[in-house]
Amino acid sequence: MNSVIELDGLAVDIGGRRILDNLRCTLSASTIGLLGPNGAGKSTLINALLGFLNPAAGTARIFGHDVRTDIREIRKLTGYMPENDAFIAGMSAVSYVHLMAELSGLPSGAALERAHEALFYVGLGEARYRKLGTYSLGMRQLAKLAQAIAHGPKLLILDEPTNGLDPPARQRMIRLIREMRASGEMHLILCSHLLRDVEETCEEVMILKQGRMVHYANLEEERRANRKFIEMETVGANGTFAHDIEKLGCACAMTASNRIKLILSEGVAIRDLYQVAKDRNVQIRRLNYRRDSLEDIFLKAMESDVPPQGATNGRL
């Protein structure tokens, strides 16, 4: 599969401080999630991909075009929905999307037609002649989406698209993202700190922490594998108990003070867990099989301080 994004040792400095450091990854899914806590560098990565910030080291390629040398080509292929409110005062939605489509290179007539279509598509058809200043937050998010897709980009970058949306509006945005993915005409990058949004829409996930990639997950593969995980509720468990379980060969993460999630490795039985619990004087109050969720992956990644090693394609 052709790569959408290649990060080749990408580092970005802002104000003399390193914000992104040595990112190496190849992402090729139709929907890519960028996850991380606030300040992890998600938006900085997007800004670097769009050429708003110059790499301090390394580089990134989008569809094979280098951000250092081919930024105009990259911008022809991308649509961008920024996180913050971004509009042009005093303009109606249709003029706004029309202008943006024209600036992307569409002739005026085609741009106007696409502006109407895009606004109908996102659900603002009836309100398209209203001034943007009179729009609610949810409507403004949809207008931003319309301007990002009006010129038919090959890659759509969505920075926190569900920010500030109420549940129905959020559902609508998620549905639109899924529909665009299903059309097969574009790739999407979804940047969010909302795990549910990413889990519902993305196939690949890159998790950032303090400017470094701490995990890569192919959610599609994980879903297909449907691995079973065990969730335990305990009394008296601590880091030593988790460490002992890891010694058995199980991947293990403590998600709360007394909750442990683990993957049973080959040759390890449930009774081995009880044996460790007995040795450490830990009570196992509840033990369930549970499918791995993005939250688990994320929490595990957040505990890790070490970036993935030998990740030629981003996989751990």
Partner: peptide, 9 residues
């Protein structure tokens, strides 16, 4: 609005 202008060619 500048990111909207400058994210294009």
């Amino acid at each position: 609005a500048l990111p909207l202008y400058l994210c294009r060619p």
